[in-house]
Amino acid sequence: MHELSICRSITAIVTKHAAGKPVKTVHLKVGELRQIVPDTLAYCWELVTDGSELASAELDIERVPGAIRCASCDETHTLTAPILVCPQCGGRDVTIVSGEEFLITSLELAEV
C-alpha cells in the first residue's frame, strides 16, 4: 500500500506551502493510468492526518481519464480499458496524452 507513503509526502508538501495557515481542502489530480487507488489514498489521508494540523482538511481527488493519440491517423481517444491500441485504425504507434498525472493542483485555506 504505497498510498500511505504518498499521503505522508503530500502532508509534508501541504504543510510547507500552507505556512501555518489552516487548510480546508487539498485538491489533487490523479491519472487513471497511475497505480494509485483513490479510495485507498483517501483512507490513508485520514490515517496520516489524524491528530495533526491537517486533521480537518479534506482530500479532493479529481480523476483524469487515460487518453492516447495515434501516430498513424492522428486521432485522440479516451481509454475505456488500459489497451494502448487506436480504436479508429488499430494502430499501435500511440502516445499517452493524459492519465499519468499525479499532482497537487491547489490548496483551499480556511478563514482565520
Rank of each mutant, 00 (worst) to 15 (best):
V48W: 05
E46T: 11
L41W: 01
I36E: 02
D50P: 00
V37P: 01
E53S: 13
L47C: 15
L33E: 02
V37Y: 11
Q35Y: 10
K29R: 13
D50K: 15
P38I: 05
L28W: 01
T40N: 08
T49Q: 06
E32G: 08
P38G: 09
L47Y: 11
V37S: 12
H27M: 03
L28R: 02
S52K: 11
K29D: 10
I36S: 04
S52T: 15
H27V: 02
V48R: 07
E32S: 08
V37F: 13
C44Q: 02
T49Y: 07
L33V: 06
G31P: 05
Y43N: 10
H27I: 03
I36L: 07
V30M: 12
E32N: 10
E53I: 10
E53G: 01
H27D: 08
L28I: 06
S52L: 11
V26T: 06
L47R: 09
L33G: 01
L41N: 00
C44L: 01
D50V: 04
G31F: 01
Q35M: 10
T49P: 01
G31A: 06
L47A: 13
T40S: 15
V30N: 05
G31D: 06
C44W: 00
V26K: 01
L54K: 00
Q35S: 14
L33I: 06
Y43T: 09
H27K: 14
